[in-house]
């Protein structure tokens, strides 16, 4: 921890603490999850950067989506994302959540995850190496510093559109909307 960081700690404790205490809830959706065990165990040890896996979205502030997203999983992802509390960051891992990847023409897989929940960072590749997760984390730090990791704000702002996309993919949702869907909310497709 260098000296100018200490000044930052006093200036913006919440932002700094958020940076250095990323508790990740990771979703064992697809093949990407195989890269997570090396990351958190002895070989790469993510805990030195304060990144540790936790068991529930209530305690987490980082949502790691590892691999392709089937329609059925999407439901669980949305539910989990909505149960996390602000500030929260979502990072998609692998090329499948970006554009469908090798499942781009599958009838049962979501191609653009960003349509359904806001993603703050992407890790491209099939598979990305575990080091890529650290690159992503350092990038996320920069984004948090600059205030650009604001997916949760986007979600709130365009909630109506997100909700509509979710309903288009999943049909009727069982749970009530997270935010009130008023008339004044900005409509339209979001990407």
């Amino acid at each position: 921890m260098d000296r100018n960081q200490i000044a930052k700690w006093f200036k913006e404790p919440s932002k700094m603490a958020n940076k250095y205490s990323l508790h990740a809830i990771y979703f064992c959706t697809g093949c990407g999850i195989i890269e997570v065990p090396p990351v958190i165990t002895a070989r790469w040890d993510a805990e030195r950067f304060g990144v540790i896996p936790v068991a529930t979205p209530r305690q987490a502030n980082l949502f790691l989506i590892t691999g392709y997203v089937s329609v059925k999983t999407l439901k669980a992802i949305i539910r989990t994302y909505e149960q996390m509390y602000e500030p929260k960051y979502a990072v998609a891992f692998g090329s499948c959540p970006i554009n469908g990847g090798m499942y781009w023409d599958s009838y049962n897989t979501i191609k653009h995850l960003d349509k359904y929940i806001p993603i703050d960072g992407w890790i491209a590749g099939c598979m990305p190496r575990p080091e890529a997760i650290f690159v992503a984390v350092t990038h996320l730090w920069t984004l948090i510093d600059k205030g650009m990791a604001n997916g949760y704000e986007r979600y709130k702002k365009y909630y109506r559109a997100y909700r509509r996309n979710q309903e288009l993919a999943l049909g009727k949702l069982e749970w009530p909307p997270l935010y009130p869907i008023g008339e004044h909310t900005e409509g339209g497709e979001c990407d």
């Binding site: 979703f27 209530r58 669980a76 992802i77 539910r79 749970w175």
Partner: peptide, 12 residues
């Protein structure tokens, strides 16, 4: 939150 809004591994 409502009592049914709790974490059950992403399931409702």
């Amino acid at each position: 939150v409502a009592q049914d809004d709790n974490y059950a591994a992403g399931a409702y």
